[in-house]
Structure formats: structure tokens, C-alpha cells
């Protein structure tokens, strides 16, 4: 079985992004960029499935600027076999991303697609579900445990009510939650080896022919409303008194 992992280059989760004063976007110049944390988990899961002898090839794909090759190289250093950059100089929205990935899926014919449940930049949480729908295959979203049994997979999903288990027929798409695994660190020799692994670059236009994009307009960016400054109390008695005064206990 071949596994396709789709990843995204995002502002590192440790960076506190700032809105530009003119409201035209967030300041990302010179900011540290990384693989979206959920996507790192997706790569790790694919590696574990391969190491368990249930997959023979891992292809990692991203849609992004030319510099996104860095993130693909990291994925290759983690252990992916081959990478594809779908190059797009401009930012694209989820539906276009899903259509572009569908093109790759149809070409690669994977038995399993693994993606992060959401990108921590736009927090949209929609591209995996859209891709599964366009591909007309089952989805298991927000997965914290995955078991592959030949032509089926048993997926445990983190949902508001607890843990839900569903069975999906392969080929299928899985989106990862945080507790699925802990991604490995890359070692220096692996980074050297990754430089020799194949990385193809294609232009996004080749992947979305005939697609009618219905982009949403982002009219403005602003900082969130700050909360009012609070008070510090010195003792439990003062805390209880403050809560009583507000009528909260």
C-alpha cells in the first residue's frame, strides 16, 4: 500500500503573530516557518504503518511557495520516500487545495491519505473532509488511534462526547489529532540522506484545470479584543470574597 501525506508550511506554533497596522494581513516576514504540528503527526503515523510492514511507500505532498521544499526535506529526513511540491506563489483557500490534492491522489492512487486535522494558521479544519468528499472515499477525522487491517481501518476519533470508534474501508482519508503519536526528531545523517531523495515540483495550475474557484474575500485583519486588566489577590479569603462579590459562588 502507498500512503500519501499532505502537509502545510505554517508559522511556527511558538511565534505569536501580530496583525499588520494597516489591517492587510499578519506579519510573517522573517518569522520561523515549520511543518504544521498536526501534519508532523500525520508523517509519523505513515512511518509507523510502513515500519509495521503495512505500507511500502510514503509520498509527501505540499502546496505552497518554493521555500516549502524545506518542509518537504524535513519530511523526507523523517523517513518519507518521495516528495511533491505543488508550487503556488499566492495563498489558496481550502477548496482549491482539496481539488489540487485530488489531482495528486488520482495520479498516485494511495490506499491511505493522512493529513493534519487543521492548519494552525487559518484554523479552518476543512481541507481533509473536502478531499475525502471529492475523492468519494470514507473519512475518519480527529483520529487518536489507527489500526490498519488489510482493506479496512479501525479509527478512534476524539470527539466532544469522548472517544468514538469507526471502521472505514480503504482507500480512505484520515485526519490526525494531537494524541495519535509523538513525532520523531530528525537526525543529522538523515538530513544528508534526504537531500538525495526525489522531490518533484509541479505548478498548481496543472492540478486544477477546469476548477471554478469561489474564493472568499478577506476584507480586514484585526487584533482580538484584549481582556480588561484583572486584580491580584493575596489569600484564599480574598479570592472567596471577590467571587462572592461577583455573585459567582
Amino acid at each position: 500500500m502507498k500512503i500519501l501525506v499532505a502537509i502545510k508550511r505554517v508559522v511556527d506554533f511558538n511565534v505569536r503573530v501580530q496583525v499588520k497596522p494597516d489591517g492587510s494581513g499578519v506579519a510573517t516576514d522573517g518569522v520561523k516557518m515549520s511543518i504544521n504540528p498536526f501534519d508532523e503527526i500525520a508523517i509519523e503515523e505513515a512511518l509507523r504503518i510502513k515500519e509495521a510492514g503495512k505500507a511500502d511507500e510514503i509520498v509527501v505532498v505540499t502546496i505552497g511557495v518554493n521555500d516549502a521544499q524545506q518542509q518537504l526535506r524535513t519530511a523526507l529526513a523523517m523517513g518519507a520516500d518521495r516528495a511533491i511540491l505543488v508550487e503556488s506563489e499566492s495563498e489558496i483557500q481550502s477548496l482549491k487545495a482539496a481539488h489540487s490534492l485530488l489531482h495528486i491522489v488520482e495520479k498516485e492512487q494511495p490506499g491511505l491519505v493522512i493529513m493534519g486535522k487543521q492548519a494552525i494558521d487559518d484554523d479552518n479544519n476543512q481541507t481533509p473532509q473536502m478531499l475525502a468528499t471529492l475523492w468519494k472515499r470514507p473519512q475518519a477525522t480527529f483520529v487518536s488511534k489507527l489500526e490498519i487491517n488489510e482493506d479496512k481501518a479501525l479509527a478512534t476519533r476524539e470527539i466532544d462526547a469522548g472517544l468514538e470508534t469507526i471502521e472505514i474501508k480503504l482507500p480512505a482519508l484520515v485526519s490526525t489529532d494531537l494524541r495519535l503519536n509523538e513525532p520523531r526528531f530528525v537526525k543529522l545523517p538523515d538530513i544528508m540522506k534526504a537531500k538525495r531523495k526525489p522531490l518533484d515540483v509541479i505548478n498548481i495550475d496543472e492540478t486544477v484545470t477546469g476548477f471554478d474557484d469561489k474564493e472568499l474575500n478577506i476584507e480586514n485583519y484585526e487584533s482580538p479584543q484584549p481582556r480588561q486588566k484583572g486584580v491580584m489577590v493575596e489569600s484564599v479569603d480574598e479570592l472567596v470574597a471577590a467571587l462572592k462579590e461577583k455573585g459567582l459562588v
Binding site: A98, Q126, T133, L134
Partner: peptide
């Protein structure tokens, strides 16, 4: 925008050929 809605609604959006406005 619960895990239920987050799971289903993007599928609906894709079937309708739209981007979803999340959250």
C-alpha cells in the same frame, strides 16, 4: 462548530462547490 459540525460541514461545502467559513 463542534466536532460533529466540523466533521460534516466541509463535506457539504465540497459537494456544493464552496469554501466554508469556519467558526
Amino acid at each position: 462548530s463542534t466536532t460533529f459540525g466540523k466533521d460534516v460541514m466541509p463535506c457539504v461545502a465540497a459537494l456544493l462547490g464552496q469554501n466554508q467559513i469556519s467558526d
